[in-house]
Simulated scan of single mutants.
Amino acid sequence: MGHGIAASATMGRLRTAVRTLADIDLSPDELLTHLDDIVTHTDEEQDFDADDAIPGEIGATCLYAVYDPVSGTCSMARAGHLAPVLVLPDGSGRVVGLPTGPPLGLCSLPFEAVDLDIPDGSVLALFTDGLVTSREGDFDEDLSDLQRALAQPARSLDALCDSVLASVCTQPRTDDVALLLARTKRLSEDQVADWAVPPDPVAVATIRREVVDRLAAWHLEAAAFVAELAVSELVTHAIRYGAEPIRLRLIRERSLICEVSDGSSTSPHLRRARTFDEGGRGLFMIAQLARRWGTRYSMTGKTIGAEQQLDELIP
């Protein structure tokens, strides 16, 4: 809500907070809960003396979505924001049914996430209310116009954005307009490898060899050293400190992702081992060699993953 320096500064803080929370792989509903706490505490600390100063946090809305290209599912949650429009490959479109949730910083109520199976090649449209709210138009009619415009064929998403804005924004708008389009692309079975890991330290060597063989089949021998180290350390960590079931997954796309899941929610800690310590260096080595690493949690345990950027290794 609002315009000017206060609202702009607020958006900058919220964007930074969202990026920070997203980096630790929180689920959409949990991320919005933390973001709501940040906004609430910021409101309590700020003092707006100017008569025309509007606290930008009051009424701030957010729609957060995470798409999984392996399973083809998208998890979404919203805090007072308009629900997105989903356009299927056949051209049919609909507004995604999401629980509304209160705007950020108002009620501190829990948010609810929805998992949606999205067909490959669909288009997900996220937008601000300025796109479907004109001075004299009807909201439902404007939303229907948006759905029809999104269903029109276009050579690219950029071209579709241009045509949608030209078709929908025919009257002067009273608010800012933002439109974000994303086309879903599910990874093929050949881009994912999955293993069940026995809870036995002897299995680490066998799993490591199978990973090297799979990387050779993918023609990714240059990435084998770091991947083999990550697999060895993460699988050993899961066997030693985690719980069954333990699974290893490799994902090959623009980067190579190694993920190890287990049934324990115990959080791993990165520490710097002392000179004569016999252990404690595994996660530190992964953090140094991988592009990034992190942990995400689920209802059944946790997943620790490490990512390698392939274009840095392979011409």
Results as ranks from 00 to 15, higher is better:
A9G: 01
R13D: 06
R15F: 02
L31R: 02
V39M: 10
E44V: 14
D49R: 10
I54H: 08
L63P: 05
Y64E: 01
Y64H: 03
Y67R: 07
D68T: 12
V70E: 15
T73F: 14
C74F: 04
A77C: 09
G80P: 03
L88H: 15
V96A: 06
G97T: 05
L98D: 03
P99T: 00
L106Q: 09
L106K: 06
S108V: 12
L109W: 09
F111Q: 03
F111A: 00
L116V: 03
P119Q: 04
V123M: 09
A125P: 10
F127Y: 14
F127M: 11
G130Q: 00
G130A: 06
V132S: 03
D138G: 09
S144K: 00
L146P: 05
Q147I: 11
R148S: 11
R148L: 08
D158G: 06
L160K: 05
V164L: 12
A166V: 05
V168S: 14
R186C: 02
R186P: 07
L187A: 10
S188C: 09
V192P: 03
V197N: 05
V202N: 11
V204L: 08
T206N: 14
V212M: 00
D213I: 14
R214N: 08
A217S: 13
A217F: 06
E221V: 07
A223S: 08
V226L: 14
V231K: 07
S232G: 12
E233P: 01
A243F: 00
P245T: 14
I246F: 11
I251L: 15
S255P: 09
I257R: 10
C258F: 09
D262R: 11
S265N: 01
R271V: 15
R274E: 13
R274I: 12
F276G: 09
G279P: 11
G280P: 06
I286E: 07
M299P: 07
K302E: 04
G305E: 14
A306G: 03
E307C: 01
Q309K: 10
D311I: 06
L313R: 04
I314A: 08
